[in-house]
Amino acid sequence: MEQIQNIEGLQLTPDLFEPLSEAEKNSEFIAAAPRTYLSDAWHRFKENKLALCGLVFLLIMVVMAIVVPMLSPYSYEQMDYGAINLLPCTEHPMGTDKFGRDIFVRVMYGARISLLIGFSSAFICLVIGVVYGGFSGYIGGKVDMVLMRIVDILYAIPNLLIVILIMLVFGSNVGSIMIGICLTSWIGMARLVRAQVMSLKEQEFALAAYVLGASTPRILFKHLIINCMGSIIVNVTLLVPSAIFTEAFLSFVGIGISAPAASWGTLANEARTLIESSNPIQIIWPILAICLTMLSLNFIGDGVSDAFDPKKK
């Protein structure tokens, strides 16, 4: 036999080898179907039944909030002095208030305002927080230092104080509540994104993109922020209920949305005066709406954070 190679005295001859089997020749083949990150997360989210219930409830709430005030024969501000403080009946499923307005329509109309404030302010915080925190973390150095001190100063002012001051200046409407909430709520998001970006930018894939000549926005958004999407989404699911809660609180103490417009907080405030009267049941409805929405949002948040947790794969 012909000698092929000599490695430190070891004789390698062809009869020592055997041909690869067919299976081994296909070693580069991947059997599993390709799955994107989001479909993977959705798959895990579906496993969590509680979170799924929350999502279904929230969707029903959104649809009702849109449809009910449109289809109902009553409007949220239409008074009927012939039907004051009615208990739930077939015409008024949740009864009427002290001015004879249909409570069911008012609760659903309130859902519009509450959900609108919750989701839009969460979205605004998302955009501001991600961009601000992302640039601060990626650029680093003195820029980061200045940007983060601004954040610290904003954080030091009490949240409610800012909201109340803004309501005083701009009046009690949806817009000013949203400005008030957004002015400080994006800070948590900015800090979170900054911390994540700072650790991710040292990773080799970010360096590789840099060496390839990618621009700063490209590295930031295509490589870094997309990789902290998990914690960003989890943070958003916490921002929504906190915004809804802030609005409800403000309206309840009487400095939020003012009558005849209705948010859940306003409705609870109006029903408060009747709690010792003949019809104490009115306060139940807005509170029930707030509680169930909060609960489902929290379940969703829980499910989402589990779904995006890399350790639960």
Binding site: P34, Y37, E204, L212, H223, N227, M229
Partner: peptide
């Protein structure tokens, strides 16, 4: 002038497909 990195587990963006990863340099330039 290009570079190949040490850790193959860290040098590829986990959110991009292989096609996107290899095409990216051509997209950039």
């Amino acid at each position: 002038m290009q570079m190949i990195f040490q850790d193959p587990y860290a040098s590829l963006n986990p959110r991009m497909t292989v096609g996107e990863i290899i095409r990216e340099p051509m997209d950039i330039h």
